[in-house]
């Protein structure tokens, strides 16, 4: 047993898991508000990170400005996608909606490769890179920063949905569209807003990952890792998404530990969440916190 390594992997798992949690949260946001399963969530991270990278390197903007412009851009981006692509598909079968988001996913992934190339590119150094000692472990400060930002985003979500007017409107729409409409909430606007917020928050996560690991098309894989997380937590539960993200992050790293020490299968890091996903779907498809009204046959 190598307890230092295990502890290190656990910490890594928490940091990555918190990011998964953030992405899962924005995924659940779209699903709750507009019943769309967004297979292009990972591309939100990708587009956001590339746009921010481009602003910082080609335009030499200071970080805070580039970051704000990115968030503004992504808000518009999400809204436009919803209005142009998803709105005509309201009322279509679930297969069509899923395929539309998949189509969006490949389109933007290829577009980003076309514009920015296939190689990972590092962000210009924004924060001093130094080693910090936590519980006797050496951790890079950027990782701690990313954990902190993830927690901040989660708090922001909690505030938005419990206290702000728009957040309440969104929850009302998710609860019952007709009743929400009769109370004067504009449902189309709520749909567009949910996509805008989701795109913005995902882009934020994308920038964080980009700052830590560099920007590359590997970012869009976060959008796929999000599925084990949301299914585990329950598709329509924000709290579940956060917990699911953390569990998936931990699971990956522990699977890697198990693999390195005993199994020697290789690549368990990438595949373990999907085995877990199949198991959850077989045993408890509505997840830990999801509403239990999905149709079973």
């Amino acid at each position: 047993m190598d307890s230092a390594l295990l502890l290190q992997l656990t910490l890594n798992g928490l940091i990555v898991g918190a990011l998964y949690g953030v992405v899962a949260m924005s995924f659940v946001l779209i699903y709750k508000a507009s019943q769309v399963v967004n297979f292009a969530q990972g591309e939100f991270l990708l587009v956001g990170a590339w746009v921010c990278w481009w602003l910082l390197t080609d335009w030499q903007l200071p970080f805070w400005l580039g970051f704000l412009v990115t968030l503004a851009f992504m808000t518009a981006f999400g809204m436009i996608l919803q209005v142009v692509v998803l709105r005509p598909l309201i009322g279509e079968p679930v297969i069509s909606v899923i395929m539309a988001t998949i189509g969006l996913g490949i389109f933007f992934q290829a577009l980003m490769k076309w514009i920015f190339g296939v190689f990972a590119k590092p962000f210009p150094p924004i924060f001093p890179v130094e080693q910090v000692s936590v519980l006797g472990l050496q951790v890079q400060s950027v990782y701690l920063l990313s954990l902190g930002i993830s927690l901040l985003i989660m708090l922001g979500f909690a505030w938005f949905f419990t206290l702000s007017k728009h957040g309440l409107a969104m929850r009302a729409t998710a609860f019952d569209q007709q009743v929400a409409q009769s109370l004067g909430i504009s449902v189309p606007r709520v749909f567009a807003m949910s996509w805008a917020i989701s795109a913005m928050v995902s882009a934020l996560a994308g920038v964080v990952v980009g700052v830590v690991n560099g920007v590359s098309s590997a970012l869009s894989f976060y959008g796929i890792k999000v599925f084990p997380a949301v299914i585990l937590g329950g598709l329509d539960s924000v709290v579940g998404a956060v917990l699911g993200g953390l569990i998936v992050g931990l699971l990956e790293n522990w699977a890697q530990y198990l693999d390195a020490h005993w199994l020697n299968w290789g690549n368990m890091y990438g595949v373990a969440p999907f085995y877990a996903l199949i198991l959850i779907l077989l045993i408890k498809p509505y997840g830990l916190f999801g509403t239990k009204n999905i149709e079973r046959v």
Partner: peptide, 29 residues
Amino acid sequence: GAPAARLKGLYLAIATLAAQFILEDFFAR
């Protein structure tokens, strides 16, 4: 397809997505 007997719609889509990655991993291994 065993999950397919019980799942439909997006749950099945996600299950088959997992099948894709598991089989791809199997091919590589």
